[in-house]
């Protein structure tokens, strides 16, 4: 059962990798990285149950959070062109 799940996730990993390698636009690649992070979370969770150590689930959850933050950073880069600078229209709060 878990073996079948892991095999299925590995196949989807291969498909996602193919999209990341070929991906004509950058948005394909961003989406590929994001969904590859999800695949990593899934495979770690499945592997934890496969080896009888469900505590790996916590690590998988942290990976999901990191993946989210990374995607936010990449998308912000694309929206504004860089990451740290305040935009001129933005008031200098903080």
């Amino acid at each position: 059962m878990y073996i079948a799940g892991i095999a299925a996730v590995l196949v989807t990993m291969a498909l996602t990798l193919a999209r990341a390698f070929m991906g004509p636009t950058v948005y394909d690649r961003i989406l590929a990285v994001n969904s590859f992070g999800t695949k990593t979370v899934l495979i770690i969770a499945l592997y934890g149950y496969f080896t009888g150590r469900p505590d790996f689930l916590d690590i998988a959850l942290v990976y999901a959070l990191i993946n989210f933050i990374g995607t936010i950073a990449v998308l912000k880069f694309f929206e504004y062109g860089d990451l740290g600078r305040d935009r001129p229209s933005q008031p200098d709060d903080i």
Binding site: R29, F36, G37, I44, F56, G70
Partner: peptide, 25 residues
């Protein structure tokens, strides 16, 4: 270079998976 940075993210996730399988959590 942007695509390279994206693929490096995938590379890190893959090596993290390898480390988990090798029990170096």
């Amino acid at each position: 270079l942007f695509a390279g940075a994206m693929l490096f993210g995938i590379y890190s996730l893959l090596s993290a998976g390898v480390f988990v399988v090798l029990d170096a959590v």
